[in-house]
Design a protein around this nucleic acid. Structure first.
Lengths: 337, 337
DNA sequence: TTGTAAGCGTTATCAT
DNA sequence: ATGATAACGCTTACAA
């Protein structure tokens, strides 16, 4: 019967018909567990991510799914937080560890990791080692992150280019007093954005001011807080580069509340290009990390890793500046007192 | 060895130690496939939904996950569109069918469906029957939807109460000229909202105008289009009740572009209370469908269905009006010409 | 062309 | 307390 279902051997037409009839009669459905047990392949991929509620992730999931679906893969969604706690309780990492285990026990064909420990500037040896061990058993792909030790397969957006694009855009508009707010200094992606921001400023002969460099969150709420801090300063920027779009929204809301108009009084650029960015009023100028493309690439590469078992080069995707309505030349009263 | 791993029988301490040592030495990890094959339970739940990119769904997923995680379940994410096509190609339903099959083959312990066919006002017999068949093999739970034939287990937000809350809020504010825009007339949730809207209007002695009842989309883009249609009418409403938050955002953007101020010139209420709603400027008054609660309830109920195999009553959760900044008494120039 | 049996990695049962 | 074995449902190899 296996033979007629899978066309794996020649069968006489008469028996084939007899079998198919029985299949229909009993509504037979094969047991994928048993098949996988024998075949040692499950068609399942595990995706470990920090928070499905953050609109960034559904976007890359969508790309992943789009590309992997027709290759016959199904996804385990492994959300490591889901309780809407922001901040950095180590709890997130133990969840990652749990899921790592569960996924290999479930014999997934591959694992994709986003966020969490792979964005840490200095992950503990244990955190790293755990992943290294898993890598020996099943293909692991890191999206927009990395782990020390080189061996990792990854697909990522070029943070530095992205931050440069954003910064240069502001400078080209005529801004000289630019703040950078958001993110966490203990995370590598934030660090890269900051470094690239600083470098671009200096390349243009501009000074970065320490008091205008604020970190401590990726959320709307933190964005509000950042702007309020800025407002309390004796000297204020005319533009703000936000570590991500959520923070930019927060800044925009706080600015609005303070009677400032964007972009007339204050220019804003975000990062990520989540759907929010084009839905806000005014629409947010931002850097697209091409999440969807990243997702598709990741699915493709992981598939290669699974089938060909070879480490075809890491993929880097180039971000793109999306100019919308939140940036303009300085000229309003700005944030100046 | 199974015995020491699962504490399923008494073992002498000496041998237990010997075994544990070997386990560590060889980094042994049990094969969940084999276990599931024997035990006839996989700890896997399939979630079929239309589009993970729609912020509504991550919210309920989050609730699901939160509740089901500690019960040991893992989720298959089955996105039936993921190509950002809106509109109603039947393709979505064939994807649902595919996933339904895949999930039973993979021997999931339960299936949760959201959106898609279970929101159809008149689903085809085939669409219905397919689900009925699956129900015979594995517990199926419908979230915010239904299928004709009564037997279905479901958890849902009370659409009618929600729409009544929104409508009455507008009326209490003093609005008499209220439009309803968004959704699809061929979908049952839209129909319920419309019916409840009409009923509430009539209960208050208000007339609903046919030209102010616009449907044909749940997206931001469609929201813009709806407002533009309204603007072209000889007589215009002072308030708009939108079928969901995305549409409300679209209306808000189009209003803004047309020089109208919300809520001064036009009051707006949304539906769903997705994160967008509290991030827009002005923040959106809306009806919270309590997605997160719905998700948690669903996980709980499904777990009962799986273990106790009993059909504990369907759960209905009561929506809540969230008054924010997009509604005010009529008084500006309104949409009046 | 088709029937039979071994094996995939577990767990439960039955002896020892 | 532990070792051996059947069974879960499938696929493949080998015989017939």
């Amino acid at each position: 019967m296996s033979r007629v279902l899978n066309n794996t051997a020649p069968v006489k037409k008469s028996t084939r018909d007899r079998i198919t009839e029985l299949i229909n009669k009993y509504q037979f459905q094969p047991n994928a567990l048993a098949r996988s047990l024998f075949k040692k392949e499950t068609g399942m991929i595990g995706v470990i991510l920090p928070d499905i509620t953050n609109p960034f992730f559904p976007e890359v999931l969508s790309g992943l799914d789009q590309e992997a679906r027709n290759k016959g893969y199904t996804f385990f969604l492994c959300d490591t937080v889901s309780t809407n706690t922001n901040g950095d309780s180590g709890e997130q990492y133990v969840r990652e560890s749990e899921y790592l285990n569960i996924l290999v026990e479930k014999q997934v064909d591959g694992i994709i990791m986003l966020g969490g420990r792979i964005n840490l500037a200095k992950p503990s040896a244990e955190l790293v080692n755990e992943v290294v061990e898993v890598c020996k058993r099943v293909p692991v792909l890191l999206i927009n992150g990395n782990l020390p030790g080189e061996g990792m397969n990854r697909v990522y957006a070029d943070e530095k280019v992205g931050a440069e694009l954003a910064t240069q855009h502001l400078i080209d508009l005529g801004h000289r007093d630019i703040a950078f707010v958001g993110g966490y200094r203990h995370m590598s992606n934030t660090l890269q954005r900051i470094q690239s921001f600083v470098k671009t400023m200096e390349k243009n002969g501009l000074k970065v001011r320490k008091e205008w460099m604020l970190d401590g969150g990726f959320s709307v709420e933190s964005g509000k807080a950042f702007l309020n801090i800025l407002l309390g300063l004796p000297e204020r920027p005319t533009a703000v580069f936000c570590a991500n779009d959520l923070v930019a929204i927060g800044v925009m809301k706080a600015a609005n509340k303070a009677g400032l108009r964007v972009p007339h009084d204050l220019s804003l650029v975000g990062f990520d290009d989540i759907p929010y960015a084009s839905n806000s009023i005014p629409e947010l100028t931002t850097v697209s990390l091409k999440c969807y493309d990243v997702g598709r690439n990741a699915a493709d590469l992981l598939h290669q890793m699974i089938t060909k078992n070879k480490v075809s080069r890491n993929t880097k995707v180039r971000p793109e500046l999306i100019v919308r309505e939140s940036t303009a030349p300085p000229g309003g009263k700005g944030l100046k007192a």
